[in-house]
């Protein structure tokens, strides 16, 4: 099939500046049956590398714009990227033709052990060089620029010298990557480290932000009382919605994702959350005096 025909048949490549949802396994059947009115979907790339899940993603991609969001590339890994994993992500990218490809400012693998979490980096010049090198390698292999997401973190390193928002801005300047602004992550990290979330937002390079993320968080207990955890197991908190409205004012409308990864509710609960994001995007755009395409 010619490339142009293929593009025309599909749900168009670019991710619109509307609300989307993170598609997870428990919703595959309901999503394909009900085809909910969401602007686009995002999946965790690592869960769709082969098998029947990949076939489901291709079926979804036939009518929805899709964003591929990786959680296992370990962009902060000092020993470099896992070449086999990067090659598999590149293969998936060719197959799905996603509107966006993204990863996190984090590391997760060392000495061939993959630790299955987004681990924190000391924010130093050395880390900057490592992350820039890894982003460049990923962008070369994928043949496109990627978005890098600000993480939720639960600790800081004594020897960090660069504020996180400045670190992200420097990545943009040095590698040409874009950013995901995860509003919930800013809220969680700001609480955990005593940052000012609005100042953080204001320090991000607005033009480089290609996507917002929203999700629920919860309070830690026991000896970690006082910290917030990025649990993705509930609705977006009111304070995060209001920080999202600030982000819209400072940055402007962008594709906005609702993520829900644990205690996953019925699909309509998720689409109701995305409708909440859509309302705010529409309201912002109307207030800004723009006309949005239907």
């Amino acid at each position: 099939m010619a490339g142009a025909d293929r593009a025309a048949r599909r749900g168009d490549g670019p991710i619109p500046a509307s609300a989307g949802i993170g598609l997870r396994f428990p919703h595959h059947a309901a999503f394909l049956q009900t085809r909910p009115a969401v602007g686009w979907v995002e999946v965790h790339s690592e869960n769709y590398l082969s098998g029947p899940a990949l076939a489901v993603l291709e079926a979804v991609r036939a009518t929805y714009p899709v964003s591929l969001h990786s959680v296992g590339l370990s962009l902060g890994g000092a020993a470099g990227l896992d070449r086999r994993h990067l090659a598999r992500l590149a293969e998936l990218t060719v197959r799905i033709e996603p509107g966006l490809v993204s990863e996190h400012l984090a590391w997760g693998a060392v000495d061939h052990a993959f630790l299955a979490d987004l681990l924190p980096l000391p924010l130093t010049e050395e880390s900057m060089a490592v992350v820039c090198r890894n982003i460049a390698q990923a962008q070369d292999a994928l043949g496109r620029s990627i978005l890098v997401e600000n993480p939720s973190t639960y600790l800081q390193f004594r020897h960090s010298t660069i504020p996180e928002s400045e670190f992200l801005a420097a990545l943009v300047a040095r590698t040409g990557c874009g950013l995901i602004c995860d509003v919930n992550n800013i809220f969680v990290s700001a609480n955990n480290h005593g940052w000012d979330p609005e100042a953080y937002l204001a320090a991000l390079p607005a033009a480089a932000i290609g996507e917002f993320h929203l999700a629920g968080h919860s309070a830690a207990g026991g000896d970690a009382t006082g910290l917030l955890l990025d649990t993705h197991d509930r609705a977006v908190a009111p304070a995060v919605w209001s920080l999202f409205e600030t982000a819209l004012r400072l940055i402007g409308p962008r594709p906005t994702l609702i993520e829900w990864d644990a205690a996953i509710p019925a699909l309509p609960v998720l689409t109701a959350e995305s409708a909440g994001a859509e309302r705010r995007l529409t309201r912002y755009t109307a207030e800004a005096g723009d006309v949005r395409a239907a």
Partner: peptide
């Protein structure tokens, strides 16, 4: 290298 503050470093690492 892990900073503490209102929550001890061990509890912070324990979350991860």
């Amino acid at each position: 290298e892990v900073l503490g503050g209102c929550v001890a470093p061990a509890a912070r690492v324990g979350i991860y």
